[in-house]
């Protein structure tokens, strides 16, 4: 039976960052800087997400003159579903936490 594993905090961070503007293509290095994560962390995550179909990839069609085309990433529909379930899980945890706090204060 296939287990539904919760993504690591770094994977979740990458997904959330891509979900900020799901239609926009983003560079991998831009994600590294935005999330303050190392390339050795972000790129394996992007590869894994692309293999799972949660991220779409493409090449720049009009690279800067004298520079090779760069790889671009954006969230796929499947990735957007994962982000929705991540957000739902987070909201549920926050709700449970505030219930516990309220119960403790009574």
């Amino acid at each position: 039976m296939k287990r539904d594993r919760r993504p690591s905090p770094q994977t979740a961070a990458v997904l959330m960052a891509l979900a900020e503007d799901p239609s926009a293509w983003t560079y991998g290095y831009e994600l590294c800087r935005r999330l303050d994560l190392k390339a050795g962390t972000v790129y394996p995550i992007l590869i894994r997400l692309a293999e799972r179909g949660q991220v779409e990839t493409t090449w720049e069609t009009e690279p800067e003159p004298g520079r090779p085309p760069r790889h671009l990433y954006r969230l796929s529909a499947k990735g957007a579903e994962v982000v929705r379930s991540l957000r739902a899980g987070e909201a549920a945890r926050e709700a449970a936490s505030s219930l516990r706090t309220a119960a403790a204060s009574e």
């Binding site: 690279p63 760069r70 790889h71």
Partner: peptide
């Protein structure tokens, strides 16, 4: 493809 992407990324 990943290798090519890394070489391209380094150029910026």
């Amino acid at each position: 493809e990943w290798g090519a992407a890394m070489r391209a990324e380094l150029t910026i």
